Simulated scan of single mutants.
Amino acid sequence: MKGRELQDAAREEAEELPASAMSHPFGPEYEVFKVKGKVFMLLTEVPGDPIVVLKADPEDSTALRESHEDITPGYHMNKTHWITLQPGETVDKRLVRELVTDSYRLVVAGLPQAEQPVDPETFGATTGRQG
């Protein structure tokens, strides 16, 4: 995927997620998506190319980086818990959408149950989204 296409796919997915909100807390060059005040995605071009930074389970993060050359450790984030999607051939729109939803679910799971906009165990299941 090209950079703009990568970010557009991620943005479109994030905007569809319940209680998702975008802001620019780090300046206009960073689009930050949060759920209930907690970051689950960051879009920027600061490193030179358009990138998407997402939260990921540490084991999944390692597997993703090993199997996709366009997925690297999180840019300016904890390298164990965050990944960066870069423009390239090893990431497609379907994978981007899945990874955005996974990042969102991980963050939602860390919220107090009363604040969770969806059930993180069932939301985004392969049979379709469920609340």
Rank of each mutant, 00 (worst) to 15 (best):
P18F: 10
F40H: 05
T101H: 00
S23Q: 12
K79L: 02
E121C: 12
E16P: 03
G27Y: 13
I71H: 00
E59A: 15
D92H: 06
G128Y: 10
F123A: 06
P18N: 14
T62M: 07
E66Y: 08
S67W: 08
S103N: 04
D102Q: 08
T90W: 00
S20N: 09
H81T: 01
L85F: 00
V107S: 02
T126H: 10
H24D: 13
I51G: 03
R65F: 12
V52N: 05
A63F: 13
G74S: 09
E59V: 10
P120F: 10
D8E: 14
P50W: 00
Q7A: 06
V107M: 01
K93A: 11
G131N: 13
S61F: 06
S61Q: 05
Y104S: 01
Y75E: 05
E45V: 09
L42E: 11
G88C: 03
A125E: 15
R4V: 13
F33R: 02
V100I: 10
T90K: 02
V32H: 09
R11K: 13
P47L: 13
K79W: 05
T72L: 09
D119K: 05
R4M: 12
K2T: 11
K55L: 12
G37L: 15
E31K: 10
R4I: 13
L95H: 04
G110Q: 14
V107Q: 00
D102F: 08
G128L: 06
A114Y: 11
L43H: 07
G3W: 01
T101Q: 04
H24L: 14
M41S: 05
A14W: 02
D8W: 02
D8R: 11
E5S: 14
A9R: 01
E5V: 15
F40I: 03
I71R: 00
K36C: 12
E45Y: 11
T127A: 12
N78T: 05
L42Q: 09
R65L: 07
D60A: 15
A114S: 14
Q130R: 10
P47I: 10
S23R: 14
E115A: 08
Q86N: 10
K36R: 15
F123T: 12
L111V: 05
E69Y: 10
L111W: 00
L106D: 02
G37C: 09
P25L: 13
W82S: 03
